[in-house]
C-alpha cells in the first residue's frame, strides 16, 4: 500500500509550490487513477513516491517502508514507468532488461519467464537484441513497462503509461494492470483521460494546482454530477472551477 501524509514540494527555492500538503492512501489490490490537468502536480507526486524527488515536508510510505528514510528497501517494492521513455538509447533492449533485473536481484529463470512472456505479448521479442535508440516511442514504452514488471513489484507506479501505445498494446496494458491488482498488488497511475480511469480504476484522485480536490470511487464521483452530465464534464468543471 501507499501512504502519503501531509506531503509538500516546492521548486525554484520555494517560489513555486508544486504539491501542497496532500494526504492519500492507496490500498493493496487497488487500482488508483491519478487525474489532473497539465502542471497540476501529478508527475511531481509520482516522482516523490518513486523516490526521485524528496518531499519538502511530510512522509511517504510504501508497504510500510519510508521512501526517504529507507530508500533502497522501499524502491525494491516499486516498479516505475516514467512519462518519458527516452533512456539508455545506447543499450540493447535485452541489456536494459538484464540491468534492471540485476538491480532488482531477479534470478535467471524468473527473468527469462517474465521477459519472454511480456515481450511476446507486446510483440517486441524480435527487437530485444537491437539498440533502444532504434526503437519507436511506443516500443520504448513497452520495454520500460516490461522492465518495471520484471520483479513482480508489490507497488506499480505508471506515469501516463498509455501515451504512445497503439490500441492493441494499450488494451494489453490495461489487462496486465487489472491482473496485477487482482494478485494483491497496488497500482497507481496517472492519466489525463477520464474514460480510462472510469473503466480501470477502483478509486481515483484529482489534483489541481498541487492540491487534491477529490478522492473516492467512480461511483462517488458520479454522485456529484448533475443530471445528464458526463463524468468528463464533471472532471473539467472540477479542475477549472476555483
Amino acid at each position: 500500500m501507499i501512504e502519503i501524509k501531509n506531503v509538500s514540494k516546492t521548486y525554484s527555492k520555494g517560489r513555486i509550490k508544486a504539491v501542497k500538503n496532500i494526504f492519500l492512501n492507496v490500498e493493496k489490490g487497488e487500482i488508483f487513477g491519478f487525474l489532473g490537468p497539465n502542471g497540476a502536480g501529478k508527475t511531481t507526486t509520482i516522482k516523490m513516491i518513486a523516490g526521485i524527488l524528496k518531499p519538502d515536508e511530510g512522509q511517504i510510505k510504501v508497504n510500510g517502508i519510508d521512501v526517504v528514510k529507507d530508500p533502497i528497501k522501499a524502491k525494491m517494492q516499486i516498479g516505475y514507468v516514467p512519462d518519458n521513455p527516452e533512456i539508455f538509447n545506447r543499450l540493447t533492449g535485452i541489456e536494459y532488461l538484464n540491468f534492471i533485473a540485476d538491480v532488482y536481484e531477479v534470478e535467471d529463470e524468473k527473468r527469462y519467464k517474465k521477459i519472454n512472456e511480456l515481450a511476446e505479448m507486446f510483440g517486441i521479442k524480435d527487437a530485444l537484441n537491437s539498440s533502444i535508440g532504434s526503437f519507436s516511442h511506443g516500443m520504448k514504452q513497452k520495454l520500460i513497462i516490461i522492465g518495471s514488471l520484471i520483479h513482480d513489484p508489490p507497488i506499480w507506479i505508471l506515469d501516463e503509461p498509455l501515451v504512445g501505445l497503439d490500441p492493441k498494446s494499450a488494451f494489453i496494458l490495461k489487462e496486465i494492470i487489472k491482473k496485477h491488482a487482482k494478485e494483491g498488488n497496488t497500482v497507481f497511475f496517472s492519466t489525463h483521460i477520464m474514460e480510462i480511469a472510469e473503466k480501470l480504476c477502483d478509486r481515483i484522485g484529482i489534483i489541481k494546482k498541487g492540491e487534491i480536490i477529490f478522492t473516492g470511487s467512480i461511483e462517488e464521483l458520479r454522485s456529484l454530477r448533475k443530471e445528464n452530465e458526463s463524468l468528463e464534464n464533471l472532471f473539467l468543471e472540477l479542475v477549472e472551477n476555483e
Binding site: K47, A50, G51, I52, P71, I72, K73, A74, K75, M76, I78, Y80, P82, E86, I87, F88, I100, V103, Y104
Partner: peptide, 9 residues
Amino acid sequence: SFEFIKSLP
C-alpha cells in the same frame, strides 16, 4: 536518465 536511475533500488 538520472531520474530513472534514482527510481531504482
